[in-house]
């Protein structure tokens, strides 16, 4: 086991994994986090805690992780390269591991231009691939990025990365995933999938490279709340692919919210059929209430309880 996290155990045992997302508040209020954790609890195997998502200042990912752990929600700490250099990142990861956190998602991060401090200095000392490598080496080689040995306990983290199958150049996307896996990604969460045929095409390229056997791939899914949101995502968000049919389907619906949830469930069922998809990552930021309904509707409940020994056995087979 890399870290022995619940997420790792679920994935290793061959179960279809479910992760969720928890966005910390733009304040120092722990109750907001507890409330969201209460909704996600029991419906996901682990929850990503976003790291100043879209470059807007929020309560720290690691601090929020510490708040949700006692509430039986396993955190996946997100870490971007935008706000910290390699010194700060390694320091924070030692801290996260010391607090008992076991999963990490490595991201380059949205550009600060999109956030509420567009005048800030973007760090980008590392990119996500070098971040993955650094974390893997800390865990497996007991080395800091500079090469110095970690003499005491090393941070043992199950390391993930994100990939966007819909970004360009499309032909390079599977190869870039390969780079992330070579750099140390144990699992991948993809960008939101609305264009299932394109995602399937990408997965085909992924399988051709044998990447699905080296790494667990979770397809990103998410409910759409309103027609406006769908249109916005279709036209304004770089790297998102929302086909016209999706917008049309929501437009035709009487209750857009309910249809958005149903659409998400349909997509989960479709991606589940694609070979090499090991789970789904449900992104319902600021709409956490939708997650239980989606998990239930997609037949993903109850979430399995896997003991470490069990997971090891399955992995060994």
């Amino acid at each position: 086991m890399k870290s022995g996290s619940n997420l790792e155990r679920v994935l290793q045992s061959g179960n279809f994994a479910v992760t969720g997302e928890l966005g910390p508040p733009k304040s120092a209020d722990p109750e907001v986090i507890r409330k969201k954790a209460g909704i996600l609890k029991g419906h996901v195997d682990a929850a990503n805690i976003t790291d100043n998502q879209t470059a807007v200042v929020r309560l720290s990912s690691i601090a929020a992780g510490a708040i949700v752990m006692p509430l039986a929600v396993e955190p996946i700490i997100q870490m971007t390269c935008r706000d910290r250099n390699r010194i700060a990142i390694q320091s924070d990861l030692l801290g996260a591991a010391a607090l008992g956190m076991k999963n990490l998602l490595c991201l380059t991060g949205d550009h600060q231009k999109f956030g509420n401090h567009p005048q800030s200095k973007g760090v980008f000392d590392l990119d996500s691939i070098n971040l993955l490598k650094m974390v893997r080496d800390m865990r497996d080689e007991k080395k800091f990025q500079c090469g110095d040995e970690i003499t005491g306990k090393e941070p043992r983290l199950f390391v993930g990365a994100a990939e966007n199958p819909f970004a360009d150049p499309f032909e390079f996307r599977a190869l870039r995933l390969g780079k992330k896996i070579a750099a140390g990604a144990d699992f991948i969460q993809t960008q939101l999938v609305y264009n299932v045929p394109k995602f399937a095409k990408w997965m085909e390229m992924v399988r051709e490279l044998g990447l699905h056997e080296k790494c667990k791939i979770l397809a990103g899914v998410g409910p759409i709340k309103s027609l406006g949101a769908a249109r916005y995502m279709a036209t304004k968000v770089p790297g998102l692919d929302v086909p016209d049919e999706i917008v049309a389907r929501l437009k035709g619906a009487e209750n857009v919210k309910a249809e958005g949830i149903k659409l998400c469930i349909d997509i989960i069922q479709q991606v589940r059929e694609i070979k090499g998809v090991a789970g789904v990552h449900i992104m319902a930021i600021e709409w956490e209430e939708a997650v239980p309904e989606i998990a239930e509707g997609a037949g993903l409940l109850p979430r399995p309880q896997i003991a470490a020994s069990e997971a090891n056995m399955v992995a060994a087979e």
Binding site: T108, D110, H111, D127, S128, A167, P238
Partner: peptide, 28 residues
């Protein structure tokens, strides 16, 4: 825009950088 050494990032679209449609994506 992010000084990537292993790009392009997930924001690259149609040869443009995620920060603006006026900016070509260097990695593209």
């Amino acid at each position: 825009a992010k000084n990537l050494l292993n790009g392009p990032c997930g924001g690259s679209h149609g040869g443009k950088c995620e920060i603006s449609d006026d900016t070509p994506c260097a990695w593209a």
